[in-house]
């Protein structure tokens, strides 16, 4: 009996150490990048355009590129993803072939490596549709990548809406779409928003697909058909081509901060979701 106690204690320590290792990994990565990057970042770094291929100046262009691509891709993916979720949960028959196929392809899309999306975006949007390396090509490619996340989170949120809401609304004489648009979507909104916020994080960080579809031009993107460079692509080029380690740290710092802020908001809306569920 004594030896048993010993083993159990040792195992407990091991489990705690494993958890600690994961915490340690996260904090050493974030800590190091913040420590090295915070000295580089100031208002000029954010507002100035890069010069001499990024050796000098700031990263304003990359910030604009990131915001531009993220906004356009979300503007495309959000209605499609939420629409898909509504169709699957509210309209499609449970065991219909179509719904099964949508779920299956959506799952497959979620697993396809980003470089494959990049290849597809390059040959389809950039070459075949003649959009060139542009904000639009990049955003459309990104939109397809974001679709599964937005769909799945919206599906879960819609599923969590109590059944009585639908029945009450329909019993009051509301039509299907009235029920969906005035009852279900508002009730599911926190979950839908979480999906959108998570997608922002993915869009900001995506590199492989973006570099093949939006290009890596250092010009300021003026319109949808201009090429653009995102912060992630900028960081990749600065670091691997040995252009400026200092500016790479600054860029990495801004990306990490952005990711932390995005995560915070995603958790906030998740919290609100579970909170409203508990109050029910």
């Amino acid at each position: 009996m004594k030896t048993f106690d010993w083993k159990e204690k040792l195992l407990t320590v091991l489990f705690w150490l494993a958890a600690l290792a994961v915490v340690g990994i996260l904090f050493s990565i974030i800590g190091y990048i913040v420590w090295k990057g915070i000295a580089v970042v100031n208002l000029d770094f954010i507002l100035e355009a890069p010069s001499r291929a990024g050796r000098e100046g700031g990263i304003s262009i990359a910030i604009v590129g990131t915001v531009y691509l993220t906004a356009v891709s979300l503007a495309i993916a959000t209605p499609l993803g939420v629409g898909t979720a509504i169709y699957l949960e509210e309209y499609a028959r449970r065991r219909s072939k179509f719904a099964y196929l949508v779920n299956l392809t959506s799952e497959t899309l979620a697993g396809v490596p980003s470089i494959v999306f990049g290849l597809f975006g390059f040959v389809f949007f950039v070459i075949f549709l003649g959009m060139g390396w542009s904000v639009l090509s990049g955003s459309l490619t990104l939109a397809i990548m974001l679709l599964p996340t937005i769909t799945r989170t919206a599906q879960e949120a819609i599923l969590a809406v109590p059944h009585e809401y639908r029945e009450n609304s329909l019993a009051l004489g509301a039509s299907k779409w009235q029920t969906v648009s005035r009852i279900i979507i508002p009730s599911a909104l926190p979950g839908i928003v979480t999906g959108i916020i998570l997608s922002i994080g993915r869009a900001v960080g995506e590199t492989a697909a973006v570099i093949l579809t939006a290009g890596s031009s250092l010009g300021m993107p003026g319109g949808l058909f201009d090429p653009a460079r995102t912060m992630s692509v900028h960081l990749y080029i600065l670091a691997t081509e040995g252009i400026s380690l200092e500016r790479a740290f600054g860029t990495a710092f801004l990306i990490v901060i952005l990711v932390i802020v995005i995560n915070y908001f995603a958790n906030l809306s998740l919290y609100r979701l579970s909170h409203s569920r508990n109050n029910r």
Partner: peptide, 9 residues
């Protein structure tokens, strides 16, 4: 958070 950090970082 670990899942949210981009691969390039």
């Amino acid at each position: 958070l670990l899942a949210g950090i981009p691969s390039v970082v």
